[in-house]
Design a protein around this nucleic acid. Structure first.
Lengths: 198, 198
DNA sequence: AGCTATGCACACCGATCTGTGTACTTAAGC
DNA sequence: GCTTAAGTACACAGATCGGTGTGCATAGCT
């Protein structure tokens, strides 16, 4: 993808130091948060020297931003590409998120986490989070339109809010809040789609 | 309130160092987050020597916990004590939160912020957050029962999720998400209260 | 072989963090 | 005036933070 794979001279050394750094970021930022993960530990997990890390990224800020950008290509994988489901089923499938965190819980959305951990609203990572959340709402609205909703944009924004609420609440309460959100979603979807379409 | 106001010997010195420390916490933790607020800065704002701060609190952890505990007594002031409103109106009033943050936005709920900033689920501050959120849901459920909802507990949990979603989403998008949440709430409330009661 | 880009190991910098040790000051009660 | 509790000022410890400088090893291309 990047220009690094085919430099003027080869660079097969570590077979992708950048990948390992971003992989370690994904693991550590999720497990311990962004602020509590030092560059030393991150480089140790990535099996990369600190010097190399700072040759790939100008600083931790850029690394965090790139870490968030990595989720962009696949906005909610396993939801919108489920062509075997009806649009309505796809909207509900968005609330069936994998529970890969501790206590068999869904880990906090990394974009919410970053937006809370990083206080500066002008930080590029915050911008990434903003863009991603807007993209999710747009995808939901698009699917809502397919499902025949009268006001797809509104429904998309509503469902997006439910997802964020479930994510945040799951973290605070240490209990799965997505079923509650899904129940609300079902109500909103049924209300937004006129009976004639069903 | 505390045993400090009337010690064996007087202690009018600073007229409540503890209060000033907690006041500074409230301001700084909100404005810059918990992790990005050092004890030095906090003590400077509170006009208290660092030595005194550590005589009132065993450490920053205890200070953070106490800072959160301070919100407990008044769970959502200006909502549940509005006797001039019907129970239904009170439920909707919960979404009419003051916008005291930057850009005329509602600042992120301090309990969500603490739950994200503090990674350890066993941290007493996390427990505080858990208890508070459970208390809010209980209060909402109680009011829902007054309003005649068929399943008050469910409605309370749903509305609590909406509040958390609005708070988190406002932070991520830098845009007020509470109107959207209030619209959903209105739908849920109307659906939960049988027509015969209205 | 020689050049060059990439990466590593390791020491190191300055800043900042939580938390303490020490000696001095102030106010209240006896 | 003496004692005692509370607070202050200030230096400092120990750790960690993000980030750099330096010298050396390695791999691919020409």
């Amino acid at each position: 993808m990047t220009e690094l794979e085919k430099g003027p001279q080869g660079l097969r050394r570590g077979r992708g130091a950048r990948e390992r750094i971003l992989g370690a970021s994904q693991q550590l930022f999720r497990e311990q948060g962004i602020n509590h993960t030092g560059m030393d530990q991150l480089c140790a997990v990535a099996q990369v020297s600190k010097r190399t890390a700072y040759q790939h990224f100008t600083g931790k800020d850029e690394l965090v931003t790139e870490y968030l950008r990595r989720f962009d290509p696949d906005v909610m994988p396993g939801v919108f590409d489920r062509t075997d489901l009806t649009p309505r089923e796809r909207l509900l499938a968005a609330f069936d998120v994998p529970k890969t965190g501790p206590q068999n819980l869904t880990p906090l959305c990394p974009y919410i986490a970053a937006s809370v951990e990083i206080h500066d609203p002008e930080h590029p990572a915050r911008q990434q989070a903003h863009d991603y959340k807007a993209a999710v709402a747009a995808r939901l609205a698009e699917t809502a339109r397919e499902a025949g909703a009268t006001d797809p944009e509104q429904l998309g924004e509503q469902l997006a809010l439910l997802l964020d609420g479930a994510s945040a609440r799951t973290r605070v309460l240490n209990a799965d809040a997505f079923p509650t959100a899904a129940a609300i979603a079902a109500v909103l979807i049924d209300k937004a789609i006129p009976a004639s379409v069903r």
